[in-house]
Design a binder for these strands. Structure first.
Lengths: 198, 198
DNA sequence: TTTGTGCATTAACATATGTTAATTACCATT
DNA sequence: AATGGTAATTAACATATGTTAATGCACAAA
């Protein structure tokens, strides 16, 4: 295992959040973490499980989804390279209420929940980083709430494509549709209408 | 001004978040804060303004709302007694993107943004409290996202009534409707359908 | 190449929600 | 009590999205 490589990836991640953490602390995190390469289409976390770790996507793509009362698969969100597979399992709920899977071959850095919580507690720089991460997540959810309140499905799709230009090419339409809160057939119809009107 | 009374209210607020903060720090916060009693129907913050303070609702009720492209008033959320009028103006955006108004006579405790940020920076207990507050806000937004993804308007209304039994009596239907992402006329229809089927 | 499997598209129809306009109910003020 | 203004309800119709089923397409396995 090439520790320095992982440290530099973690550094890149933290810098993408405008966070500065000493390299020795990043090294400490990497020392405690485990790394997994997961092939496409694997389940990496399931409903009802205890949340024992948080994952950073070093490469690849993960998807978080609900199973609703009728058994339908509904996408809650995507975790592309450089983001975390993080959900409320990490704060407040010990049992997962959603699933995670890989949509491509994916490399994960896994950090035990207890290790992260200890780091957050003991290290002010990490605690500040955690705050920034929470604030960003909250802003994102507010942005999404705004979409459901004031936009129709077509507008939400347009904004999705702007925000995730790569994903809209590689991810199955059905997952994008449920992420937008509509049926896959509806997204198909919307795409056609957008083509026809240029 | 009865400082002790405000300190006890602030204590109640922090305990509702399972937060323990020394009383002298609460006293310090109260010393720095200003208090305002605002009559029903007043605008307390507007789009485009700089966010200079955060407000805790000591009594009464406030409402946060967007104005969409067509000029429609769309409710983003409510801040009943014991909660904060907090939006992304406090973290990341300096300019407000939404409005706040009172729906009843309301008493606010106003804390300057700079004062809170200083407190968060310098006092670990406050910093931990801020984390808990962010986590709770994030859980709430995830709950809401879930509603838009897997529920229809009727189900969202039922859940709203369970979560805010008081509000569903006192708040104008039109605000509840836009909060649920539907037109007031649609909520009216839903309520009638619910009555008819018991 | 053949076969099988899942995905995207399409069409027809069903349902939920939006829109408009009229009516009624409910207040606050005078 | 009378008035005026806002909110809620209702109905008729418009539109967006859901549902079902059929078809075609792409890709992987045999």
């Amino acid at each position: 295992m090439d520790k320095n490589y992982f440290v530099s990836q973690l550094k890149e991640f933290s810098e993408s959040y405008q966070i500065n953490v000493d390299e020795d602390i990043l090294g400490e995190i990497v020392n405690k973490a485990t790394f997994r390469v997961i092939s496409k289409g694997e389940i990496i976390a399931s409903i009802g499980e205890k949340t024992t770790a948080a994952a950073l996507v070093l490469s690849g793509l993960a998807r978080c989804y609900y199973i609703d009362n009728d058994g339908n698969d509904i996408t809650r969100g995507f975790a592309p390279e450089g983001t975390m597979c993080m959900d409320e399992g990490f704060f407040g709920y010990s049992e997962r209420i959603c699933m995670w899977e890989t949509l491509e071959e994916t490399t994960l850095m896994l950090c035990k929940t207890e290790d992260i919580k200890k780091l957050i507690k003991e290290n002010v720089a990490i605690k500040d980083a955690w705050i920034l991460l929470l604030e960003r997540a909250l802003r994102y959810k507010i942005y999404r709430e705004n979409g459901f309140l004031v936009e129709n499905a077509t507008e939400r799709y347009i904004h999705f494509k702007k925000m995730y230009p790569n994903l809209s090419e590689t991810v199955p339409q059905k997952h994008i549709a449920t992420y937008l809160g509509i049926a896959p057939e509806s997204l198909s119809r919307i795409r056609r209408a957008m083509k026809e009107t240029d």
